[in-house]
């Protein structure tokens, strides 16, 4: 029996997935273009962070970082960055 069916067996009624089960969907694999933040050019304005639909830009103490496990590579961050601090690099096949 799959781990998932195990869950179904014990769960009640209508809850079909445990909260956070979606983390298994590594949406980073969808990406063909990889955004790279050049920290030296970054002014920490936060536009890439606020505009990322997937919350894949993470605000750290002193910098913004991209979570490549889940970044889908849409490139919004690159287009919205006023300083040109984000570059899109083709992913290796």
């Amino acid at each position: 029996m799959s781990k998932y069916l195990e869950y179904v067996k014990q769960t009640k009624h209508t809850v079909v997935y445990p909260p956070g089960w979606s983390l298994v969907n590594k949406t980073g694999t969808w990406r063909s273009l990889r955004p790279v933040i050049h920290q030296d050019k970054c002014t920490k304005c936060g536009l890439c962070w606020i505009y990322c639909p997937d919350g894949a830009v993470e605000k750290k103490e002193d910098r913004y970082e991209i979570n490549y496990e889940y970044c889908k590579g849409c490139g919004i961050c690159k287009v919205e960055c006023k300083r040109g601090a984000i570059e899109l690099v083709r992913e290796e096949a």
């Binding site: 799959s2 998932y4 069916l5 179904v8 009640k12 209508t14 809850v15 079909v16 997935y17 445990p18």
Partner: peptide, 26 residues
């Protein structure tokens, strides 16, 4: 209530898309 009730402290999802993997079991 023993049925599914919205719970802010213990949130869960109701009526999500369910694949054939478990639909017949439900």
């Amino acid at each position: 209530p023993k049925w599914a009730v919205f719970d802010l402290d213990n949130p869960f999802q109701i009526n999500e898309l369910l694949t054939p993997e478990a639909f017949p079991e439900y």
